[in-house]
C-alpha cells in the first residue's frame, strides 16, 4: 500500500534554517545540511527546502546548498524559492533535487508550469499555493483566494480553479499552504485541502498548521491529502518523526515504519 508521506520543511535564510510565524519573527534553528541528514536518518519520507528570501532579494537560489543537501541524503527532496525561469529549474534539478516548487512565479507566468513539465516531467514540477479564506465572496466560488509573495499580494484567483489549471498545465503535485493556518500549529486547514484533493488527480500535500500527530492524521483522513509538510512541531523538538509515525501507525494510517 502506498504510504502517506511526512515532509519536514526547512525554511532557509542565508544558509540557516529559520522558523517564523506568517513569515515574521524568524528564529535561527540550525544548518540546513545537518538538519536534512538528521530528519532523513530520523525517518522522514521526503524533505522540502525553501530559500525564502531569494525572491525578495532578487537573487537566484543558493545552488551550492542544494548540492550539499543532495550529496548528504538519499531520499527525495524538493526545492523552492528564487526560481525565476526554466534555467533555474534545470540548475536545481541537476544539483540533485527531485522536484522544484514554484509559487509566485507560476502566478506571474503560468506557462512556466507547462515548460517545466515538458522539459523535466510532471513529477518534477510542484505547484505551491497559499490560499486564504474568503467566505461569501462571489469572486471565489471555493471560498478561498490565492495569495502571492509570502501572503502579501492577493491575486483575485480562486484557489480550486488555480489548482485545476495548474494540473492541466502539467503540475505533478500541489502543495496547499494555508495562510490562515500557517505557523499556528492549531491544525491544517482541512476544508481547502479537501476541496483541492477532490478537484485534482495528482497528489496533494497539506501544509501549514501541523502541531500534533492528530493534525497530520486529520489532513490525510479528513483533508484527503497524500502527504503533509511539517515544521515547528519537529523543529522545536516537541515531537520526533518516530513519535509521529508511531502515533499515525496506531491510528491505522499507512506510513513507512522502517528506514
Amino acid at each position: 500500500m502506498l504510504t502517506k508521506r511526512i515532509i519536514p520543511c526547512l525554511d532557509v535564510i542565508k544558509r540557516r534554517v529559520t522558523k517564523g510565524v506568517k513569515f515574521q519573527n524568524n528564529i535561527d534553528l540550525g544548518d540546513p545540511v545537518e538538519m536534512a541528514v538528521r530528519y532523513s536518518d530520523g525517518g522522514c519520507d521526503e524533505l522540502v527546502v525553501y530559500d525564502i528570501t531569494a525572491s525578495a532579494e532578487g537573487r537566484p537560489i543558493d545552488i551550492e546548498m542544494v548540492r550539499e543537501v543532495a550529496a548528504a541524503i538519499r531520499i527525495p527532496f524538493a526545492v523552492g524559492g528564487g526560481i525565476s525561469c526554466l534555467e533555474d529549474m534545470s540548475r536545481v534539478l541537476l544539483a540533485g533535487a527531485e522536484k522544484v516548487s514554484v509559487n509566485s512565479l507560476a502566478i506571474k507566468n503560468p506557462q512556466i508550469i507547462s515548460e517545466g513539465s515538458k522539459a523535466f516531467g510532471a513529477q518534477c514540477v510542484v505547484l505551491g499555493m497559499d490560499p486564504v479564506a474568503h467566505p461569501n465572496d462571489s469572486r471565489f466560488p471555493s471560498g478561498y483566494e490565492v495569495t502571492a509573495r509570502g501572503f502579501r499580494v492577493r491575486t483575485g484567483m480562486d484557489a480550486v480553479e488555480w489548482a485545476k489549471r495548474a494540473v492541466d498545465l502539467g503540475a505533478g503535485e500541489i502543495v496547499v499552504n494555508s495562510v490562515d493556518a500557517d505557523g499556528t500549529r492549531a491544525g491544517f486547514e482541512l476544508t481547502i485541502t479537501r476541496l483541492i484533493a477532490e478537484a485534482v488527480n495528482v497528489p496533494v500535500v497539506a501544509s501549514g498548521g501541523g502541531g500534533t500527530p492528530e493534525h497530520i492524521r486529520d489532513a490525510f483522513v479528513i483533508g484527503g491529502a497524500d502527504a503533509a509538510i511539517i515544521a515547528g512541531m519537529i523543529h522545536t523538538g516537541d515531537y520526533t518523526l518516530r513519535q509521529i509515525k508511531d502515533a499515525l501507525h496506531a491510528d491505522h494510517v499507512p506510513v513507512r515504519m522502517h528506514w
Binding site: 502506498l2 519520507d45 488527480n201 495528482v202 497528489p203
Partner: peptide, 8 residues
C-alpha cells in the same frame, strides 16, 4: 492519484 508518488 496518478502519478503514484511515494513509498510503497
Amino acid at each position: 492519484k496518478v502519478p503514484q508518488i511515494g513509498w510503497n
